[in-house]
Design a protein around this nucleic acid. Structure first.
Length: 152
DNA sequence: GCCAACGTTGGC
DNA sequence: GCCAACGTTGGC
């Protein structure tokens, strides 16, 4: 069982939007970074728990929890010229990009902001907090996961 | 294979 | 809107 953190701009896709989906489940499309793709492809398993992080918004931070319900499969938005995630170099016969399906578990009782996360010694070394980190998917250790939930 | 130019992310 | 950090592209 692994733990993760996945970022989304709430204007594009928020935890409220996930909660409103049929079966409260959605595919996590549009990841166009190889490191993040490799994590989805190689390491993410059904049952893994994921923090939902709102990025690029007035108060960035962790807003809820979701769960992986389908393991990596081709990101079909890469094949759709109408999609903003279209990638002409992704060949349907040899897909370049991968997505997983994610199900809403719950919102946190309160938002745990990025600025708060940065203040905890216990979270030193958390990949999200590394200088210059731009990865939209990062692993979270069990210790970090438990600690963050204990601050809720 | 190097690296300059360019594009994107995302906090502030 | 700014800009630091970083990834990708493409000429050589």
């Amino acid at each position: 069982m692994n733990y993760w953190l996945m970022k989304s701009e709430p204007e594009a896709f928020s935890i409220e939007a996930l909660q409103a989906m049929p079966a409260q489940t959605e595919h996590w499309d549009g990841v166009r970074n190889y490191q993040a793709r490799n994590m989805m492809r190689d390491d993410m398993r059904v049952g893994d728990l994921v923090f939902f992080y709102h990025s690029n918004c007035p108060e960035p931070g962790i807003v809820g929890i979701m769960q992986v319900v389908r393991e990596g499969y081709p990101d079909f938005t890469a094949f759709d010229p109408q999609s903003k995630y279209f990638d002409p170099k992704s060949d349907p016969a040899k897909p370049r990009w991968i997505m997983v399906d994610i199900k809403f578990v719950r919102t946190l009782k309160r938002l745990i902001s990025l600025s708060e996360l940065k203040q905890y010694d216990e979270l030193q070394g958390m990949q999200l907090l590394r200088k210059g980190n731009r990865l939209s998917i990062t692993p979270v250790t069990e210790e970090q996961w438990e600690f963050i939930l204990s601050r809720e």
